[in-house]
Amino acid sequence: MSIDEGTARRVARLARIRVEETDLPALAQEFNAILGFIEQLGEVDVEGVEPMVSVTPMRLKRRDDVVTDGGQPQAVLSNAPDAREGFFAVPKVVE
C-alpha cells in the first residue's frame, strides 16, 4: 500500500510533529521505502500463531497499592521549561 501526501500529513499530525507542506512529498517517499521493506512480512504464514506479549515467560510482579515515593514537587519541576507556583505551565488550553 502506497502512502500519499495526505496520509503523510495525517501521520505527522497524529505524531504531533510539524512538517512543512513542501517536505511532505519527500516524507511520503521515505515512508513508502520503509513500508515496502516491511511488506515482506506478508509472506509469512502466521495462522494460529499468538502475537508476542512478553519475550521472557514472566509474570509481572505485584505489590501493595500504596504510595512508595513522592512529596518532592521541586525535584519534579526542576527540569520544566516553564513552572509556576508548583505547577507545569502551558499555553492557554481553555478560552
Binding site: I3, T7, L41, V44, V46, V49, P51, M52, V55
Partner: peptide
C-alpha cells in the same frame, strides 16, 4: 502509522506474530 486505526492488525500484530 503502524499503530494507527486500520493498520494495527496488518502491521503491528503481524510483526508480533512473526516475532513469536
Amino acid at each position: 502509522y503502524v499503530l494507527s486505526a486500520g493498520f494495527y492488525d496488518a502491521y503491528y500484530n503481524k510483526a508480533r506474530k512473526v516475532r513469536t
